[in-house]
């Protein structure tokens, strides 16, 4: 499996006590698969993605990227990973081109110039190479983050709300980009509140609520489950039913 999450838990400590954001979560994503991670606010989606990316340390459990433990073997695991967060976090003093070159240097990207030029064209960033993040719109900055993620040869791609701030043309292009990367063999885990996007793009869906996995399967499999059969066949209907918000 390209991505394997095994009994993963994450707890936050605060002055008011401890809070378990993710509790005993297990799932796997194979190469070529696009898995949607959905759930209401506070379900633990972002904590899961950030832990897989190596930003947060798991309180319990194991996360492996191509067999490399993100805690025990972080460098080899991170080399195979690309994380595209919902908030475009860039160095405000580096230009678009310098961000890409920095990523290329960090991850050892071969044929960087060709790949970067193709990517800038694909994401409609051509002409913005010399711009600083402060000179770009939010959508453009989001595209830069995605370009930094895609310029390297990652086997596992993590997208956290990838369409935030994009215009309709950008949204369509991004859907195509994600699908194309999966066809090339990448394992993709995508978190989004846009259920129609998840339904359209993802081959499988994981629904989380209050830190726990409450459903896992294709839309058809979920719709055919006995306890969800009455909800309806759309992902939105299943989501409301399974999270207890159904009418």
């Amino acid at each position: 499996m390209a991505l394997a999450v095994d009994h993963f838990s994450r707890t936050y400590s605060a002055a008011s006590g401890t809070f378990t954001a993710v509790d005993d979560l297990s799932f796997a994503v194979a190469g070529g698969e696009i898995v949607g991670l959905i759930g209401p606010n506070g379900a633990g989606k972002t904590t899961t993605l950030r832990s897989i990316a190596g930003i947060l340390k798991p309180t319990a459990g194991v996360i492996r990227i191509d067999g490399h433990d993100i805690v025990a073997d972080p460098i080899d695991a991170k080399r195979r990973l690309a994380f595209m967060p919902d908030e475009p976090h860039l160095f405000e003093y580096l230009t678009v081109a310098e961000h890409l070159r920095l990523v290329a240097r960090l991850y050892g990207v071969d044929e960087f110039d060709r790949r970067a030029a193709a990517l800038l064209d694909e994401l409609e960033l051509t002409g913005k190479e010399g711009s600083l993040p402060g000179e770009l719109s939010r959508g453009m900055r989001q595209k830069v983050v995605i370009a930094c993620g895609l310029v390297r040869h990652a086997t596992t791609l993590l997208f956290d709300e990838p369409l935030t701030g994009l215009d309709p043309i950008g949204i369509r292009r991004m859907r195509n980009t994600i699908a194309a990367r999966a066809q090339q063999g990448a394992a993709i885990l995508l978190s989004s509140h846009l259920l129609h996007l998840v339904e359209e793009v993802c081959s499988r869906v994981i629904i989380m609520d209050r830190g726990r996995k409450i459903a896992d399967g294709t839309c058809e499999e979920l719709a055919s489950r006995a306890d969800l059969a009455a909800a309806g066949s759309s992902l939105e209907q299943i989501f409301f039913r399974v999270t207890g918000h159904g009418a």
Partner: peptide, 21 residues
């Protein structure tokens, strides 16, 4: 602008520095 981008007074000027491969 600062609040929107968290940017301070940086200018996209040439620095003459190139990151080695």
């Amino acid at each position: 602008m600062h609040s929107a981008t968290q940017a301070s007074a940086y200018r996209a000027s040439r620095t003459g520095l190139t990151l080695a491969e």
